[in-house]
Computed example of a mutant assay.
Amino acid sequence: MVLVLTILVFLTVAVVVFTFAAAVASPTSVLGARLRSLEWQRAAPEKPAMKRRIEQVLDPISRAIPMSPSEASRTRVWLMQAGYREPHHMRAYVAIRVICAVVGLGIVLLLGVGLDSPWFLFGIPALGLILPRFALKRLIKARQHRIRLGLADALDLTVICVEAGLSLDQALSRVGEDLSHAHPDLSEEFHLVNLEMRAGKPRPEALRNLAERTGVDDIKSLVGVLVQTDRFGTSVAQALRVHSDSLRTERRQRAEEQAAKTTIKMVPALVVFVLPSMFFVTLGPAVIQLIHTLIR
């Protein structure tokens, strides 16, 4: 009798627990929805993240350098070409320049080097202002190189999608999704183009914004081809195929040009490192023998 009661109690508790868990986990359950809403309400008041705190610190520092509207616009274009489009990226970049200049001035003052020379006193902080811009230029070139490498594959996929019956907008959206892992930078740009066109911008304007955001010459020529195709109503697939062939020819010519430049680039290394060693090996014994002869 005791064993039977124990089994019944166990089965009752198991059924109650299973029923409650199923009610909470079910997406259509009122109880589950209520519990999830209460959980979200408790999770809402979170502490600011470290990234947010850093932005709050860099915001007043970024106002130390006054910038003209033209310079601010040019800097914003550079940041977009490097892949930084948020408003706080501009403030962070200016703040980093200020911090580098202050750190350079602090190093000069702490070490006491060049206090009598204005070149060191003003040159090191100026170098701190220039270094972030140099790093930004390097990031722009690296991103443009990645976009340039993935453009040929994107054109081939776009031709396939257009020939399959998709419109140009749908083809760009599909190509952006397919290239999200292989070429994420180009995929992101195509996604932004589709967002602008969905927001109501004309296709030529969205494509010109794409060329401005990337700063790649191949993208600019592609945009010109697509704008002319849209204006005159010619075949998009044929225009993209011709442009893809010309793009591959340009890439081959560019690679041949880089290969031809290697011989010229090797001359300084040969003059600095190889020729002195050859002189020491060939003329060294003769010079030593001559010295011994003169000493005797």
Rank of each mutant, 00 (worst) to 15 (best):
T249E: 13
R296L: 11
T262G: 12
S37C: 06
L166I: 10
V103T: 14
G128C: 01
S70K: 13
R198M: 09
I291F: 10
A49P: 15
F122C: 05
S221F: 13
I219E: 06
A269S: 04
E163V: 05
V236K: 00
V17R: 00
E71Y: 08
Q56I: 11
A135H: 09
Q253D: 06
V15M: 08
V98E: 15
A286Y: 00
H191I: 14
V13L: 04
G150M: 01
L270H: 01
A22S: 08
P87L: 00
D218F: 08
D245F: 14
Q253M: 09
R203G: 06
G104L: 02
P125A: 02
F20R: 06
Y93V: 11
T229E: 10
I160L: 02
P276W: 07
A199T: 00
D169S: 11
R203L: 03
A95M: 02
K261M: 07
L109C: 05
Q238G: 12
V108C: 07
R74C: 06
V271R: 10
P184V: 00
G150A: 04
A25R: 12
A135R: 11
R231C: 15
S173H: 09
S73A: 15
V271H: 08
K201P: 06
V193S: 02
P45Q: 05
H145Y: 11
I107K: 09
P66R: 02
E188R: 09
K141Y: 07
L121T: 07
L129W: 04
G284K: 02
R97A: 09
Q228S: 11
V4F: 12
T158I: 01
P268M: 03
S70M: 09
V113L: 12
G112M: 02
K141E: 05
L172Y: 13
M90F: 11
V24F: 07
P268D: 05
R143V: 07
R97G: 10
R241W: 12
M278S: 05
K201I: 13
H181W: 15
K137R: 10
A164S: 07
W40K: 14
L38Y: 09
R241A: 00
R254W: 03
A43I: 08
Q253N: 12
N209M: 12
L129S: 02
G176Q: 06
R213S: 05
R74P: 08
E205Y: 10
P285K: 00
L136R: 07
L131H: 07
I264E: 14
I295T: 15
G200Q: 01
L151Q: 03
M50P: 12
R34F: 14
F122A: 11
A199F: 07
A164Q: 04
